[in-house]
Amino acid sequence: MKGIVFVEFGRMVSLKFSEEMLDDLLDHCDLASGGAYTSVGTYDHEELVALVSELSRRTEIPVPGLIKAFGAYLFERFLIHYPYVKVEDNCFSFLASVENTIHVEVKKLYPSAQLPHFEINRPDEKTLTMVYRSDRHFGDLAEGLIEQCILHYGEDITLTREDIDTPDQPVRFILHKK
């Protein structure tokens, strides 16, 4: 997983909880990297899982809620980090562009990045479905990102999530415009 996700996670913990909380998480988890993250590095995604689990234990907030909150935070940070990524003028267009525009840009910067795969469908004018597939099973992170995207564009859209029961455990998000 790209270092920027770890760096942003640490930043969020420092802001929403405290610097000490971040120190404690890094000290307590047995991390192969030693917790010395740099945004340009690449680290095992299990380290993030360990950090989130430890945060959940310490704050007594369930893991899915924490990951979703991190997703929402990450969306706004991405907009700040990558202003040159062409920002679409509505939520559906933005989400539809993730796979073919934004991920292409990411690959230019990080040729070795392993990106999740989104399958986009527009069954009708008012509906967009995204099927998320990733070895890392960060469906919660994707949900947080999508929720924040809806908020960002300020549109009246409901989000429904369906976890599909197949071995690769994809997640289908259904967005419906009112």
Partner: peptide, 13 residues
């Protein structure tokens, strides 16, 4: 420890 991590991160970067 924080400063050690920061240094290590810098060196890795």
């Amino acid at each position: 420890r924080r400063s050690l991590r920061d240094r290590k991160a810098r060196e890795e970067a």
